[in-house]
Nucleic acid binder design. Structure first.
Length: 468
RNA sequence: GGCUAGGUGGCAGAAUGGUUAUGCAGCGGCCUGCAAAGCCGUCUAUGCCGGUUCGAUUCCGACCCUAGCCUCCA
């Protein structure tokens, strides 16, 4: 039984797919106006993990993650760059896909682009007007009338009066209420616009997700996810729109991942304390380090980003790879993997609201088991199942996807010693060791260490190496 | 001001009404020519004050502190 924390109720509830055996989930993807930052990466990795785990548990999963390609920020950036907004969006959509692939995020079943769902948005806006939830304001914008939707504020636990008391929004005389939000913005010169019965214009951000999720998953599906900052107003507005337009039940469970902070503060463009995923990936040994780091604390809690933490993540991941070293990558031919107690423990942890830190602890337990077996001289046949189980479970989290030896030998810096050079020096050292010329042996080892190559002498005169 | 989440050992980070994950770092030992890796052992913890309880880090209340939302934001 999989239990998931539902933001709507504040409690964990059992996942019972509307359509038995088939989980339909949607997450608000990113706005392609720039390279996405590490905080975005957390959300992307978290929901990729969720979809992978649900599949691992035997569910058929339809995961839809949208791309917001019609938005103020895109229009403004494109204008600054002097290019068409579509070209700007395309550039960063392509970059996003590259970074996602590096992070090991599987492609969702559908990746709808807002610009291709304008008709659906207009239909939904029409339904909202017909149902009395929306009105066209004096400036031509179509607004959502939040007063008309009784449950407004349920998701975020806010009351209209409380919201208004804290409202810092500029008074917009075109709105009936300061909290009303735009469904359709009337066209302005130089901006993209589509024709509609309310005049030329473009969609507001919130209606985009309502239209795309409803079109691709229907009026009633299982999981809707996104970052915590989307809870209000974006997801609140989505509920008001979808339920107001279709009368449907919309999402059963709302999942929100916590923030990735810098120095305990939310990263934001205005504070300037953010890192793009792209620049972080360029600094670390392997993209898996970032993925492992992002999954090393529970998805709902806040977590701090720092280079030091990434180093710790690399150390933890390296321990896992170390256990896999020297064990064949594949199960022996004809041998079936037999899941053991670790698989049960892993599933129990993950069933409980995707407790990835606990699941990783199970992985570390398997690593210890392997190391212990290896140090007591167990052969590959005895190790195969444990190693296979470790790889399989880690795969559910999207880690340990690299052959172990490649993990240790990869990441050579510019101008570093080649593998052949290293092997030659190891051979020279081996000769020195045979002659018990320890001074020469140590000299070669120190020389390699200076080149960031660590030697490890194994039993039987075998020496392996790895890059630090 | 309103609402929400959280304060766990040197660091990160789970869990739990009583026997206290996991990783990194430290210490001792084994292994090694010496190392490295690994294994074994081991030291540090539950913001503060009350209450409930045989017993609370875990439940309840007050307080302090931190972060987030209330404005575009994963």
């Amino acid at each position: 039984m999989i239990r998931i924390h539902n933001s709507l109720t504040g409690q964990k509830q059992e996942l019972k797919p509307v359509e038995p055996g088939h989980v339909r989930m949607y997450s608000c993807g990113i706005t392609v106006y720039d390279y996405f930052h590490v905080g975005n990466a957390r959300m992307l990795v978290v929901f990729d993990m969720v979809s992978r785990y649900l599949r691992h548990r035997g569910y058929r999963v339809t995961y839809v993650r949208n791309i917001t390609d019609v938005d103020d920020k895109i229009i403004n950036r494109a204008r600054e760059a002097g290019i068409d907004w579509r070209a700007h969006a395309k550039k960063f959509t392509d970059a996003m896909h590259e970074d996602l692939a590096a992070l090991g995020c599987l492609p969702p079943e559908k990746e709808p682009k807002a610009s291709e769902y304008i008709d659906e948005m207009l239909t939904m806006i029409g339904q909202l007007i017909d149902n009395g939830y929306a009105y066209q304001a004096s400036n031509g914008d179509v607004m959502y009338d939040v007063h008309k939707f009784a449950p407004y504020g349920k998701l975020s636990g806010k009351k209209l009066d409380d919201l208004r008391a804290g409202a810092r929004v500029e008074v917009d005389t075109a709105k009936r209420d300061p909290l009303d939000f735009v469904l359709w913005k009337s066209a302005k010169p130089g901006e993209p616009a589509w024709p509609s019965r309310w005049g030329d214009g473009r969609p507001g951000w919130h209606i985009e997700c309502s239209a795309m999720s409803t079109k691709e998953l229907g009026e009633h599906f299982d999981i809707h996810g996104g970052g915590l900052d989307l809870k209000f107003p974006h997801h609140e507005n989505e509920i008001a729109q979808t339920c107001g337009a279709t009368g449907g039940k919309f999402a059963e469970i709302w999942m929100h991942n916590g923030f990735l902070n810098i120095d305990n503060e939310k990263m934001s463009k205005s504070l300037g304390n953010f890192f793009t995923t792209r620049e972080v990936l360029a600094k670390i040994k392997h993209p898996e380090v970032l993925r492992f780091f992002l999954l090393s604390s529970h998805y709902r809690g806040p977590m701090n980003y720092s280079p030091d933490q990434l180093e710790q993540a690399e150390a933890g991941l390296t321990r896992l790879y170390t256990a896999l070293r020297g064990v064949p990558e594949e199960m022996p031919a004809g041998v079936q993997l037999t899941p053991g107690s670790a698989t049960t423990a892993f599933n129990e942890s993950m069933d409980d609201d995707f407790n990835t830190p606990e699941a990783i602890a199970v992985l570390q337990g398997l690593a210890r088991e392997l190391n212990t077996a290896k140090s007591s001289g167990a052969g590959n046949a005895a190790l195969a199942n444990t190693a296979g189980e470790l790889r399989a479970l880690a795969g559910v989290l999207g880690i340990l996807r690299v052959p172990a030896e490649q993990w240790f030998r990869g990441g050579a810096a510019e101008g570093a010693l080649s593998d052949a050079d290293i092997d030659a020096r190891i051979a020279a050292r081996l000769a020195a060791r045979k002659a018990k010329n320890w001074a020469e042996s140590d000299r070669i080892r120190d020389e390699l260490a200076a080149a960031k190559v660590i030697l490890e002498d194994k039993a039987g005169g075998v020496t392996t190496w790895r890059r630090a």
